[in-house]
Design a protein around this nucleic acid. Structure first.
Length: 934
DNA sequence: GACATCACG
DNA sequence: GACGTACGTGATGTCC
């Protein structure tokens, strides 16, 4: 066949690749590649179509030439004619984006010509090729159902809807458009197209358009003789919108005369190269297709590890298999471990759990590893259990019957790092960090804790015990009896191996069962995208940040501690003097008795415990008249700073790194926010001058600076977007002072005459709105009469009715569905929304706040996930996240570049999943320490 | 271990 | 008509 020139007797298949991808994407369930979760549903559908094409190549009506044509991403020449062309088309779904290049790869793997040209749409290339083929006397089949291509039908050109397997010839076009192919563009020009944003003639659809074109013969004739039309409205439209209609025709008219850098002859059908194709298919892990293709090519199908989704579905329901300690194996040597390695390889996945000497992953040692490949069947590999304390030779000796730790790790490493084997864990960040210290980079991973978070946020916690009890109806073996408690508590390495096996193996067993249960639920609950884009990819990012830590200067803290202690002592003496007796200032109970009984100051008891409330707000009220409460407030501030920060922080400095390594709880907050623990670095003081100085102890390494980038007013911006408040959006677009603007709108004060006091009140209202405002809450915050506060709120809602609408509809949604959602699809369950009594108020406000706080949390998560790649070329390290702030450490020379790169990522973090009507703005600061940088 | 208090966004 | 409220967190010290 080679060398034949395209001409009579030739048959060209033109496949509309882009259209096909979208149809495959929407028609098929969201399949993911088992080994790493890569979305591949559309690729799978696409490959099946190509497979069919290959079969067709041998069929009775076989093509001699074939090509798959793609849209070039980006704008086409039509955007130059009409900038709104396809403007209302939403961006491609995020899990489809990575599949675009894969479909090109697939096409080439099938050895089919793969064409796209910058600045042109696939339709134009198809049109040009179809015209060329027709002129050469050949036949053409366009494999697409896109009506825009129907203008090409006729003269040997037909279309084929591959999904419905339906051919469309001239008659088919007449059926669809009421006119022949040669007049399709005329009808389209009149009818317009909302999908492509082609304006057309308002009020005229396909039916009317066809009627008119058939009556007048052509669009040009119709427009010239528009005066003759009887219906007044129609006549007026055609006359007034003539220009718009003519533009529409240009938009829908395909270009048959493109200059191509290839010829029809280049599209000759070729046999696929068996090895290339099978390699690709097995890389995609397309089991069935690999087999069918291999059969057709007369080859052996490549081995692909079994798919978890299919296999999980086929195995017994995880909750149906009883828990049985007897089935848990203790692996004591290499031979025993090898059988598990083999089982894992055969299975393609494994649940993993590590046992360690403590909870701090930066410090603790590995004690053992448990594995599970099938519900009910698990093992524990003890590696560093120590002999009993009464051992004559000291407690340091390892217990008998353990294989060497290095040997076990060496055997497991290839499995744990194999991209084709999925590692399943409960809070895998912990295990991955431990294993990292033993030279193992665990990947890919699934995490049942994160799955539960995507599914059940707001309903309950996501710890293993909770999940096991709720979803497996099984109470796990408690750790307490093994470790003891209090002073006599031991670490896991001191637990007897026989006791450790059932406990440890069960954890892996539970994890596997939870995974089998949750995995399909992600799809059913429509949170796969949340899990795959906001949860799973964040794990390694957080692990890196935690490992990085931040340098904290012990001397600075220590000096401050001493200073605080001195001041506190002085204050304490003064307080005792004022009280006329000595008492524990740190005891709210004793303080309350002094203030309200002995001194008889005005104030009240509080609820449950019967003790007086002595919170800062109450003391502040008293402080205007009395010295004692004022001193107590000072004392308390210092006490807080000293105990929580200057003292406790020193204990968290890692002796090896000299840095403080926090731990982020990814599932800590129901809204999608992270929580920071051990220590909490998200609540380091900043609001008072004295407290802010603690940040001076957070420093950069020599030659480096700390860089702080934070979102400006992100929650208010998100509220403006979600509630659709034009005034607010405009103010943000103009870079205005949003609180001053609010104040001006509300109190009708011109911006030039704004006073700090009025602005302060507006600011409180703006924040109140985010929290689900109430007259009471605002009154307390502003210390104004409740009536006045309610007046402010009423005026606010009058001025911004959209806000009230947002609040009402959010609560409505919560009541109906039992959850609310962020813009990115994260669900936050609102269990008590339909409760009665005071609980209802709480639930309502939480429901109003959650989508706003949660969307902001999603945005910064997306930025964090993209950050490593964006700063990979720079010597910068991301250290901390504080809800709307990211802190970096970077050599001075790379500061500007890092700010630019990080800001770019942060400001565009919502795209392309969500297009915000309000731009996100990121402020940056730098300094030798965190106080300077912030 | 519950409660009160206070640090942050 | 009264209830009793700002949203989301974590750490510390007191007291039982």
């Amino acid at each position: 066949m080679s060398g034949t020139q395209f001409g009579k007797g030739c048959h060209l298949h033109l496949i509309d690749g882009s259209a096909f991808i979208f149809r495959a994407y929407h028609a098929l369930p969201p399949l993911t590649r088992k080994s790493d979760g890569l979305p591949i549903g559309a690729v799978a559908g696409f490959c099946n179509m190509l497979f069919k094409q290959v079969e067709d190549n041998k069929g009775p009506d076989a093509p001699t030439h074939v090509a798959v044509i793609f849209d070039y991403s980006g704008k086409s020449f039509r955007n130059e004619m009409y900038d709104l062309y396809k403007a209302n088309r939403p961006p491609a779904p995020e899990d489809l984006v990575p599949q675009f290049p894969l479909t090109r790869e697939a096409t080439r793997a099938f050895n089919i010509a793969c064409k796209e040209i910058e600045g042109f749409e696939a339709d134009d290339i198809i049109a040009t090729l179809a015209c060329q083929a027709r002129e050469a006397g050949g036949r053409v089949t366009i494999i697409s159902s896109d009506k825009d291509l129907m203008q090409l039908v006729g003269g040997g050109v037909e279309m084929l809807d591959a999904m419905k397997n339906k051919r469309i010839d001239s008659d088919g076009v007449v059926e669809k458009f009421g006119v022949g192919p040669d007049r399709v563009v005329d009808v389209q020009a009149l009818a317009g197209d909302s999908v492509d944003n082609v304006p057309g003639a308002p009020g005229i659809g396909i039916k009317t358009a066809a009627l008119l074109i058939n009556e007048f013969g052509s669009l040009e004739e119709l427009l010239d003789r528009a005066e003759e039309i009887k219906q007044p409205k129609r006549r007026q439209t055609l006359i007034e919108k003539r220009e718009q209609i003519e533009l529409s025709k240009k938009l829908v008219q395909l270009d048959c005369n493109m200059t191509l850098d290839f010829t029809l002859d280049d599209l000759e059908v070729k046999e696929p190269d068996a090895e290339t194709l099978l390699t690709f298919l097995s890389e995609m892990e397309f089991r069935t297709l690999s087999k069918r293709m291999a059969d057709q090519l007369g080859m052996e199908a490549p081995a692909i590890p079994e798919a978890p989704a299919a296999a999980a579905a086929s195995s017994a329901a995880p909750e149906a298999v009883p828990f049985d300690k007897e089935n848990y194996e203790c692996v004591r040597d290499a031979a025993g471990l090898q059988t598990w390695v083999d089982r894992i390889r055969q299975r393609g996945w494994v649940a993993v759990d590590t046992e360690t000497t403590g909870l701090d992953e930066m410090v603790v040692d590995l004690v053992g590893i448990s594995l599970c490949v099938e519900a009910g069947e698990a093992c524990y590999i003890p590696l560093a259990h120590k002999a009993g304390g009464d051992d004559l030779f000291g407690g340091e000796g390892l217990s008998e019957g353990q294989m060497p730790l290095e040997e076990a790790v060496a055997m497991l490493k290839p499995v744990l790092e194999d991209p084709a084997i999925l590692k399943i864990g409960q809070n895998m960040k912990y295990d991955a960090k431990i294993l990292h210290r033993y030279g193992v980079e665990v990947a890919p991973v699934d995490d049942t804790m994160l799955m539960s978070y995507a599914l059940h946020a707001g309903l309950h916690g996501h710890g293993m015990d909770t999940l096991s009890e709720r979803y497996l109806d099984h109470t796990p073996i408690p750790i307490k009896p093994l470790l003891g408690s209090g002073k006599s508590a031991i670490t896991f390495d001191k637990v007897a191996i026989d006791d450790a096996v059932p406990y440890a193996a069960e954890d892996a067993d539970i994890t596997l069962r939870l995974w089998q249960l949750f995995k399909p639920q992600l799809h059913q609950e429509r949170v796969t995208t949340v899990y795959e884009t906001l949860e799973r990819p964040l794990v390694p990012v957080l692990a890196d940040m935690e490992r990085n830590g931040i340098k904290v200067d012990r001397d600075t803290l220590s000096r401050m501690s001493n200073a605080f202690a001195q001041k506190m002592a002085a204050l304490e003496a003064e307080i005792h003097e004022l009280a006329g007796e000595s008492f524990n200032v740190g005891s709210p109970k004793q303080l309350g008795e002094i203030l309200f009984d002995k001194m008889a100051l005005p104030g009240g008891k509080k609820g449950k415990t019967g003790a007086y409330a002595t919170g800062a707000d109450i003391l502040e009220d008293l402080a205007t008249e009395h010295d004692l409460p004022a001193r107590v407030l000072d004392w308390r501030q210092l006490s807080k700073l000293k105990s929580t920060y200057t003292d406790a922080l020193q204990d968290h400095i890692n002796p090896e790194t000299g840095r403080v390594h926090t731990s982020y709880a990814q599932t800590g907050a129901s809204t999608g926010r992270m929580a920071s623990t051990d220590p909490n670095l998200q609540n380091i003081p900043v609001r008072t001058e004295e407290g802010r100085r603690i940040r001076e102890a957070f420093v950069a390494e020599e030659g480096n600076v700390l860089l702080s980038l934070d979102y400006s007013q992100i929650e208010l911006r998100i509220l403006a977007h979600m509630a659709g408040i034009d005034t607010l959006k405009q103010a943000f677009a103009d870079g205005q002072d949003i609180h001053a603007m609010t104040a001006s709108e509300m109190f009708e004060v011109p911006l030039e005459e704004m006073t700090p006091e009025i602005r302060r009140q507006a600011k409180a209202i703006n924040f109140g709105v985010i929290y689900g405002i109430s007259g009471f809450g605002l009154a307390r915050n502003l210390r104004i009469p409740r009536k006045d506060a309610q007046g402010f709120i009423d005026r606010y809602f009058e001025r911004f009715p959209g806000i009230r609408k947002y609040m009402d509809s959010t609560v409505e949604f919560a009541k109906e569905h039992g959850y609310v959602q962020t813009l990115f699809g994260r669900k936050i369950h609102t269990a008590e929304i339909n409760a009665k009594g005071p609980k209802a108020g709480f639930a309502k406000r939480a429901a109003i706040n959650a989508p706003i706080q949660g969307t902001a949390a999603d945005v910064i998560r997306r930025a964090m996930i993209r950050m490593p790649e964006a700063i990979a070329h720079l010597p910068a390290r991301m250290l901390l996240q504080v809800h709307d702030e990211l802190l970096f450490e970077v050599p001075e020379a790379a500061v500007e570049e890092t700010i630019a790169a990080a800001r770019q990522v942060m400001e565009n973090a919502a795209d392309p999943a969500v297009h915000l009507d309000v731009k996100l703005v990121v402020d940056a600061g730098r300094g030798r320490n965190w106080a300077e940088a912030h």
